[in-house]
Design a binder for these strands. Structure first.
Lengths: 142, 142
DNA sequence: GGCAATTATATTGTACACAATTTAATAACG
DNA sequence: CGTTATTAAATTGTGTACAATATAATTGCC
């Protein structure tokens, strides 16, 4: 096996799939006027009412260099609010506005659409998910 | 199952793994003074002597908007040459310089290092590879 | 041959991603 | 209590990604 062939590189395939999947999200997200990384922020905030940039970053594996401008763009669209914590002025607390909360209804169909384009049954999906989890954990350890 | 949980989103996991893997490549690629996308270009050019930007883009799923500046940066490092095709002046042919070719020796250990950090046996690796192939093909169809 | 499509790259503009540094607030400790 | 260390965001700079458009060369067709 020639290890230099793209064909044999799992990382390249992950990279390519990640970008292809994002391109499948794009037409769906265009309706909500958000990007894929912004959608990931929404996913977190639809479940947790308010959290700091640090906590958000831990869940998304992103740092303030990425999140600060991204959250500012979302704030300027009126989707969320950014406010310094009153307990600790270093922390910036992020929470959705009503408008942001309401977007959840419109987004209801998105996960289904994506699963459809992956064209897998539940067994395959769950299996792949647990494989990816294993990899994620391994990579995070180091 | 709450389909809005990050935990349940395969796309997010792919996205996260892709970025984590790239961060594992970084210290290895720093020695060669190239980035991960530039490394992908090298992988193709170590196998194929010369090809056009279009052909390169087909293999990497990238367009000229990404490749043109990326290849210019690589050219300015002396890794590769960009030259218009003599047969068809629209095409730009890319090929490695001797310096770029020689980098292959130094890169020899990189795939092994990455496979090591994935900590999988050959069966697991091949299995995951074929799963990813299936997904890649499905996503490409549409 | 001449002109309208098509094709290949380049350019422009926006949005991540991330390393490195800076700033401001809080914690820790003698 | 004051100084040092730590922490959380913000900023700066570089490098992808990608949509949309522009430019230039080639092809197709009458």
């Amino acid at each position: 096996m020639n290890k230099f062939l793209l064909e044999n590189q799992i990382c390249f395939k992950m990279h390519a799939i990640s970008r292809l999947l994002t391109s499948h999200y794009r037409p769906l997200l265009d309706k909500l006027d958000i990007t894929y990384p912004q959608y990931l922020v929404m996913l977190v905030l639809w479940e947790e009412e308010a959290l700091s940039v640090k906590e958000l970053g831990e869940q998304l594996y992103l740092d303030s260099g990425t999140l600060t401008p991204l959250l500012k763009r979302m704030e300027s669209k009126g989707i969320l609010e950014r406010k310094r914590s009153e307990v600790d002025e270093r922390s910036l607390i992020v929470r959705l506005t009503d408008s942001g909360m309401n977007m959840k209804v419109e987004a209801e169909c998105i996960p289904d659409e994506i699963v459809k384009s992956l064209d897998m049954n539940k067994e395959e999906y769950d299996f792949l998910k647990s494989r990816l989890n294993e990899i994620l954990n391994k990579l995070n350890q180091k």
